[in-house]
Simulated scan of single mutants.
Amino acid sequence: MGGIDKRVFEVFFGNRPIDHVQTFEPQGGGFPQKQDKRLTERGGTLRYERTDVGTVVCTLFPANTKDFCQREDSIVLDWIVKPKALHSSRKLQSHWRAFISYMECTSVDGEPSALDKIRVGYLRFTRLLVIDGRVAKRKVVETVEKIVGYALTIGLSGFLLMLINVVGSSGDKEKVKAEIEAVSHQLSEANGVIHAQNERIVALERRIDAIQTAKAAQRRLP
């Protein structure tokens, strides 16, 4: 739970010992003495927090130790505009599967399956990440921007070169028009490829959820 804050609900694995070491600690100016020190891991956390405007932010926090942590501080798993959506068992199951996969992938003793790795990789690629206390731009947005920028740069450069060659050599307006149409068609195809890749990402997430649901149903069978 969120303690005394009624706007916060948390599910977490808690702390657990993973190892112990022996160190020499100073004793008030005397000779250092050997002491046993227990190493612990703080488990992953799934947090739901209601904002001042009534929306609910669902956040994943990774498992970590004193010397081992992830690149991101947390992943914004979902931003729920209408809290009634949390009554959907499908949405809650999706959050729970993401939570378990994230714990398996970030724990020092985790044993993530291929589905766990794919799911966490997808989340890191498509969701907002908090890194060093700041919200970073989504990787999928950065990738799309690079693809579009590359396509526009190459397409426009090629178009200008062809336009200069055509106009300089013959001045044929029909050829210029044809080149313009060809470049426009290439840019349209590039946008289509980007849209198709986004659709594939969404379809992959749905397929992973369906496989995970089927496996969970099989385990419940006697």
Rank of each mutant, 00 (worst) to 15 (best):
G2L: 03
G3C: 07
R7L: 10
R7T: 11
V11D: 03
N15K: 10
V21L: 12
F24D: 15
F24C: 12
P26I: 00
G28E: 13
P32G: 05
K34P: 03
Q35S: 10
D36R: 12
G44C: 13
L46M: 05
R47A: 11
E49P: 00
E49H: 04
R50T: 13
T51W: 01
T51C: 04
V53F: 07
V53E: 13
L60C: 05
A63L: 02
N64L: 13
N64V: 10
N64W: 11
T65V: 04
K66S: 13
D67K: 07
D67T: 06
Q70H: 05
E72M: 14
D73E: 06
S74Q: 11
D78C: 09
P83S: 04
P83M: 05
L86V: 01
L86R: 02
H87P: 02
S88R: 06
S88K: 05
S88C: 06
S89W: 02
K91Y: 07
H95P: 00
H95S: 01
R97N: 15
V108F: 12
V108P: 06
E111S: 15
P112C: 01
S113D: 02
S113V: 01
A114T: 15
L115D: 12
K117A: 09
V120S: 01
R124T: 10
R124I: 06
F125M: 12
F125I: 11
F125R: 12
T126H: 04
L128I: 11
V130S: 04
V130Y: 01
I131V: 14
I131A: 02
G133K: 03
V135S: 09
V135C: 08
A136D: 05
R138W: 05
R138A: 07
T143G: 02
E145H: 01
K146D: 15
V148C: 03
G149P: 00
A151K: 00
L152C: 03
L152N: 06
G155E: 02
G155V: 03
L156T: 08
S157A: 09
F159W: 15
L161P: 01
V166I: 14
V166M: 12
V166S: 15
V167Q: 05
G171K: 00
D172V: 11
E174R: 10
E179M: 09
A182S: 10
V183R: 07
S184K: 07
L187Y: 01
S188L: 11
A190C: 07
N191E: 06
H195D: 14
A196T: 07
Q197H: 12
R200I: 13
R200Y: 13
R200D: 10
V202C: 06
V202L: 13
L204H: 04
E205T: 08
I208P: 00
A210P: 00
T213Y: 07
A214M: 08
A214Q: 12
K215C: 15
K215I: 14
R219E: 13
R220Q: 10
P222M: 10
